[in-house]
């Protein structure tokens, strides 16, 4: 399974109520269920007129299939190839330190 970042354009996304988000979640779960292949919805973030989602699937086409079945837009589907953060800087330093030691 690969991890994908999905950008969806949703006008007025940040104004969605908790009930509306729950409804979307139900629809999405049903879509995942119906695929009949491995699929994992990790998490989603609402920001402005966009919703960003992290999903796991075998390929981008399956991500789009999920979107079609849920009736969701999906403007960008990009595979996540690496993950890093503040800790990455020190990780590298300590790796180097370990190497030279």
């Amino acid at each position: 399974m690969k991890l994908f970042l999905i950008e969806r354009e949703v006008q007025g996304a940040s104004e969605l109520t908790h009930e509306q988000l729950a409804e979307i979640s139900r629809t999405s779960n049903a879509a995942v269920e119906s695929l009949g292949v491995q699929y994992n919805w990790v998490r989603s973030y609402v920001a402005g007129d966009k919703i960003y989602c992290l999903h796991e699937a075998s390929d981008a086409e399956t991500i789009r299939e999920h979107a079609r079945r849920g009736g969701f837009s999906c403007e960008v589907v990009a595979e996540v190839v690496a993950e890093f953060g503040p800790h990455t800087a020190t990780e590298l330093e300590s790796e180097r330190a370990g190497a030279t030691a």
Partner: peptide, 19 residues
């Protein structure tokens, strides 16, 4: 991410070529 018809219509399929 509501499932209205209007939203759906902004969705662009990319699979036409696989058939």
């Amino acid at each position: 991410m509501t499932s209205t018809a209007a939203d759906r219509e902004t969705f662009r399929t990319a699979v036409g070529g696989s058939y």
